[in-house]
Nucleic acid binder design. Structure first.
Lengths: 219, 219
DNA sequence: CCTACCGATCGGTAGG
DNA sequence: CCTACCGATCGGTAGG
């Protein structure tokens, strides 16, 4: 009997689950945390391998769960992607508003652009990043209805740049139409996800300096 | 018998193949064309749905082939992706060299930058485009060895910008370090794949004008 | 959350 | 290139 068990343990896949039962009291108090952990692991995998190439089993394994368990938290893989993008965009829009609100009342357009650029680098490349890059590079994986849901927040985030860009254009610092300039600037910043490395030659502050000079001539 | 045949024809999938046998003489003279057609359909699908979400059956159907037939031309789905990127990058590097060679000998740095930008928009968004956008947005789907093979050509393409950017920087038109400026500029241009529409408000020539102004202050 | 499972689909192949 | 097929994998589910 003992021998047979030993054989079985060599053949069966070993579940990688922390010992003990998950703690839940009357109302599953840490369900929200587990759900969010799931989103973080999913986002990291979506970014490295792409959404379509990431299996729900990959995500379950990263959580130490079994293959069916992610569906206890999200009704489908697609809903998980949507949750990542939606929450990412909500957090980004909220932190952008806070960053602008912290500005001194007498701050000029250059100072406002600096805050917008620095904040954008932070949500793209900062320590808490991940959800927004997934949004940028997996947009096509959303359904039409999902795109609509995220677009609402994204549009507000982008619109927040326009008064500042228009002001810099009128003052002659920004040298292209504000609408097109915004698209070019977003491209320049968003593309940094492809090449930035935290251990590289430039910090986020230094990149912000360079971007400010390149686009708005601020020394 | 005739009745049974009628039943069969309703149940069997109808092959979508042009009538007649494919013409091939002694050495399969149009094999190269079919192979290239396959790459074009694949590139279009890879761009719309992503590489992982595109099945070899999708590609076969777009060609009017049966599901196993793409493997007559490419030994794997991965080899097909690699062929698209490799040929795309080779064509882009070649046309870039030609565009620069057509410049008048007395052309200044602004004129050279204009040619580089206009050419880049053309390979990204022009009528013959498709392979390069796939390369930009499916880079992570390549194996390490494949990346090495494409990088060689890509590095040369990118390096061709540096003397011009350095010259514009020294003359005070480009307002950020050339190396970082190149990354920002490539991002700005490459991102246009996400938002450009041929029927939109700006032509490629107009976008080139705007980019020249934004990055190098050329009116 | 796990157990145990299913139907569908996918990349790829042997042989012609 | 088609025919006919296979083994592996995938998203998702019923029931506890």
């Amino acid at each position: 009997m003992a021998e047979s068990r030993a054989h079985v343990s060599l053949v069966q896949p070993v579940p990688r689950r922390p010992r003990g039962r998950p703690r839940k009291s009357a109302e599953h108090p840490d369900e929200g945390n587990r759900r969010h952990e799931l989103m973080e692991h999913a986002a990291r995998l979506f970014l490295v391998k792409g959404y379509a190439a990431t299996t729900t089993r990959d995500i379950a394994a990263a959580m130490g769960m079994h293959s069916g368990s992610p569906f206890y938290y999200f009704k489908s893989k697609s809903a998980l992607l949507y949750a990542v993008m939606r929450e990412g965009m909500e957090m980004a829009a909220a932190s952008q508003r806070q960053a602008l609100a912290r500005l001194a009342p007498e701050a000029d357009a250059h100072a406002r652009l600096r805050v917008l650029v620095r904040h954008h680098f932070d949500i793209l490349l900062g320590p808490a990043s991940g959800f927004i890059p997934v949004m940028l590079y997996e947009w096509r994986s959303l359904t039409a209805a999902q795109k609509k849901g995220v677009s609402q927040i994204k549009d507000a985030y982008e619109a927040a740049w326009m008064p500042t860009l228009a002001q810099l254009f009128d003052a002659g610092f920004l040298r292209a139409e504000p609408a097109v300039a915004r698209l070019f600037i977003f491209g320049a910043l968003n593309w940094s996800v492809q090449w930035f490395h935290a251990r590289g030659s430039h910090s986020l502050d230094e990149l912000t300096d360079e971007a400010l000079r390149l686009f708005a001539g601020q020394a």
